[in-house]
Structure formats: C-alpha cells, structure tokens
C-alpha cells in the first residue's frame, strides 16, 4: 500500500501578476510548489517513515517545467514521481485534471491519497474530492491530522468557530490537507543528490491535451482586479513623514489616546 501526493506547480506568490483576459499573463513568472501541497507531501513522508505505507509517490499535471515540482518533492524524500504532461491552460478545469489524476492513482496501490486543500492560484479547492468521488474512495477535506488505526484512517478536520471533527475513513481514502497540519521539511543536499536517481514516469493524458476541449466543465472567462467599494486613503513617502501623518488619523479614526511623543 502506497501514499500518493497530488501536487500543483503555481506561480511564485511574490510575482507581479497582470490580468490578461481570462487569466493572468504567465509569460514571465517564476513557479514553485503550491504551499498547501507541501503539507500533503510532508504528511505522505511521515506516513512512510512510520512504516504505514510502502512508497510515497508524487503526481503532478502540468507543462515540462512542472517536472521541477516533482524534483523538489523527490528531494524532500518522495520515492518516485509521475508527471502528467499537458499545457498549463488545461489545468483551468478541475474536473478534467481530477479525471486524469484519478486514472493514474488507480494504478498506484494507493491506500491514501493526499492533496492540498486548494491551489494558491486558481483556488478551486476540489481536485482531491473529485478524485475521491471518481474512484469511489472515502474522503475528508481541511484535514489537519492523519493517523492509521485498526486498518482505517482517522483524521481531524478543521470546522468553523475553532472546532475540530474527528472522522474515521475506510481505506482507500483521499484527504485534502490544510496548512499547519505539520512542518514541511526542506530538501537536504543529500536529498537533492538522491533525487537525481529516482524514477519519474511521463504520461500524456488525452483528457488534458486540448485546453479548449468542449469537454471542459469549468471555463475561465475573465480575471480582473476587484472594484473596491470603500478604498483606503493611501499614504506614501518617507517613513517618518508617513508616521507623522498616521498618528492624527489613528487618533481621530480609532478614538484612542496615544501615549509618548504623540500626545
């Protein structure tokens, strides 16, 4: 029985994003692993290290450059990778992505599949659940802890109002991991060296070949900066001047007494 982590490569969050029609202009961006997915990878590694699963397998869908995301996960300690090669624009439709991923997961003897709760870019937050539904596996989202118990999986789910649900899942199961579930490790130098010898299988799934396929369930129509109803008064300038301008605004706006040099 193996653990399979589903990972997406997303634009670096510190990039300058420019909307371009239905999506952003992706011509000059750096990419990295989706933050949520780092927690999924770490959870998979911890399960393998605890002897609960045999192998930890990483799967990603994306263009050639996305192989870098797989390399990073292998350097963190994942055993092998599977790369579903497709145009980045094909990732816009979570259904077809899930369908392609499900096809691969089915053949991995997966006891547990771990996805990130959502992707930082598109934020659709459903690929894990779709894979579970398509493969008829049990499922929980917003998961902050996983442990095997009596041949089942016990997970903690984050609810609203600081409540936690403890849920038992029969195997095989898919979970969407929430940030903070663990402390994702960084790749060590040794890990990076070792990753070069780890196998990566490349597959070109027909579902994802054409981004504009009429089979798409969700289409991206437009991306734009939000119109802000009430926008802030913006202060710019030398820090000390800005600070001097802020104090009277805080005093009258917040109605608080300020101490020290401000009074």
């Amino acid at each position: 029985m193996n653990a399979v982590a589903l990972v997406k490569q997303v634009p670096d969050r510190n990039s300058v994003f420019r909307p371009a029609g239905p999506w952003i202009d992706e011509s000059s961006l750096g990419y990295g692993i989706n933050d949520y997915d780092r927690y999924a990878v770490e959870a998979a590694l911890e399960l393998r290290e605890a002897g609960a699963v045999k192998q930890a397998v990483v799967v990603t869908a994306g263009p050639d450059e996305a192989s870098q995301a797989i390399r990073t996960c292998l350097a963190m300690g994942m055993d092998r990778g599977i790369h579903l090669v497709c145009p980045r624009a094909s990732l816009a439709d979570p259904f077809r992505v899930a369908k392609a991923l499900a096809g691969v997961v089915r053949a991995q003897d997966a006891g547990i599949v771990l996805a990130g709760l959502l992707a930082e870019d598109s934020g659709h937050g459903q690929v894990g659940g779709l894979v579970a539904g398509l493969l008829d596996m049990s499922w929980a989202s917003a998961v902050t802890a996983v442990r095997f118990r009596d041949g089942k999986l016990e997970v903690e789910r984050e609810l609203e109002s600081s409540r936690v649900a403890v849920v038992e899942l029969e195997l095989p199961a898919v979970v969407a991991v929430q940030t903070g579930a663990n402390t994702p490790r960084y790749a060590s130098l040794r890990g990076i060296m070792a990753s070069r010898r780890k196998p990566v299988e490349r597959i070109e799934p027909p579902e994802l070949a054409n981004p504009d396929s009429c089979d798409a369930r969700i289409r991206s129509l437009r991306l734009a900066k939000p119109e802000r109803a009430a926008s802030a008064e913006i202060l710019e300038g030398a820090p000390d001047d800005v600070a001097a301008a802020l104090i009277p605004r805080i005093r009258s706006g917040a109605g608080i007494v300020l101490g020290g040099g401000a009074s």
């Binding site: 459903q126 659940g129 779709l130 539904g133 398509l134 499922w139 989202s141 917003a142």
Partner: peptide
C-alpha cells in the same frame, strides 16, 4: 468543502 466535490463527481 467536504460535500460539493463528491456530489460533483457523481
């Protein structure tokens, strides 16, 4: 988050 994707897959 939990129910919608399962329903959608169906």
């Amino acid at each position: 988050w939990d129910a919608a994707p399962l329903l959608a897959a169906r």
